[in-house]
Simulated scan of single mutants.
Amino acid sequence: MSDAIVVEGAHKRYGEKRALDGLDLRVRRGAVHGVLGPNGAGKTTAVRILSTLLRPDGGRVEVAGFDVRDEAAEVRRRIGLLGQHAAVDEELGGRQNLEMFGRLHHLGARRSGTRADALLERFGLAGTGRKPVKRYSGGMRRRLDLAACLITDPEVLFLDEPTTGLDPRGRTEVWSAVRSLAAGGTTILLTTQYLEEADQLADRISLVDGGRVVAEGTADRLKDRVGGDRIDVVVRDAGRLGEAARLLGDQVSVDEDRRLLGAPAPDRMATLSRAVRALEEAGIEAEDIAVRRPTLDEVFLALTGTAPRAHTTAGAGVAA
């Protein structure tokens, strides 16, 4: 089988609310698949069903070749789950936590200890084995959470918004750990509201809204759906925004609060050169000018009218 996860027409209701409304999803083995969407889109419900914590009301849902309803025990033997909240004991050390998880999975004392040492080394925590988790940084704690999910070496790993609440350094640490897992062949389903996270980690992305997938593809393919490159110009004098917008041509977006203009750039360098020349000739000073690809934020806005939460700097682009 090439697919580690197969979801066809999955439904789940909570009273009158449809959390999943015909969700279709396939994740190939060894891939990192991102599921991106705003709050209430159905991401966490999907993960809870895939990890056998919830039963779907309808549809076909299989993980590692097993049905989540009829063969739930087989599914659980093959998966790991990192939820939105830490599952480790803060009073225990890192090694003690991992040994405890190993014993809970019936690995036995010796194997649990061996596995704990290997995972602490793998996630850069070997020197903290006896240190109470309450003294860990946010990134270290999340890496320990990841290590605990891997105590049984699962085929499929579910990461449900794994970096929520972390500072940039903590996020980077978790991203590095996820890349290491992917390089080792683990299939990873990642749900996130963070645009850069999906862009950085996922081989393929599903955009979810209203309990169903509204678009799917690589990050580049999804960005292509809302057009090609764009030019962004930050004008120093807000009073000249209108004049600058006319110089950039048609289909210009204007953000008055940020003094930011955006326009299509079908030919990156030619568009940039024309814009710089036109602004200079008009005596309009630009604080910043850049040509960039569309963002996943813009993709989501174009497809649903709702943007997921971003933690990148607003308006930042790739300098030409």
Rank of each mutant, 00 (worst) to 15 (best):
V6T: 07
A319P: 12
T306P: 01
I205E: 05
G113A: 11
L20Y: 04
T313H: 03
A4W: 03
L150H: 03
R110Y: 06
D160L: 06
E91G: 14
V47C: 10
Q84T: 03
L296Y: 08
T52V: 02
A245N: 06
G242T: 04
L261H: 00
D209W: 11
K43G: 09
R77K: 13
V213F: 12
R240A: 02
V318E: 12
D153F: 13
G210Y: 13
L54I: 05
V252D: 01
A275C: 15
V291D: 01
D267I: 11
R221T: 11
V75R: 05
N97H: 00
E216D: 09
T44M: 05
H85V: 14
P132F: 06
R268K: 09
R76P: 11
G58F: 04
D267K: 11
F158V: 01
T187H: 08
R130I: 00
A316Y: 15
H105I: 03
L25S: 08
R258K: 13
A244W: 04
A314E: 14
R171A: 09
A64K: 12
L261T: 01
N39D: 14
V276S: 04
E197M: 02
L54P: 01
A290M: 09
D21R: 03
G127F: 14
D288F: 12
V254C: 02
V156Q: 02
R240L: 07
D67G: 08
V276E: 00
L36C: 08
L301W: 02
I231P: 13
R77E: 12
G239K: 07
A182H: 06
R246F: 09
D229M: 10
T218Q: 06
E280T: 15
A307T: 09
E285M: 10
P132I: 04
A86H: 09
S51F: 04
E121W: 07
G102H: 07
T304S: 04
G9D: 15
R258W: 06
A270W: 10
E155P: 05
R48K: 15
F123L: 08
Y14W: 13
V299T: 03
D153P: 03
G83N: 07
G34Q: 10
A265H: 07
S137I: 03
E71V: 02
L53A: 14
K131D: 08
N39L: 09
L146V: 12
G34E: 09
G170N: 12
A126G: 15
L23H: 04
A10I: 05
S206T: 01
E285C: 00
I49A: 09
F158Y: 13
E280N: 14
L296G: 06
L146N: 02
G165V: 02
D3Y: 13
A265F: 01
R230I: 10
R258F: 04
G210A: 12
R240H: 02
K131M: 14
R55K: 13
R292D: 14
R246G: 10
G239Q: 05
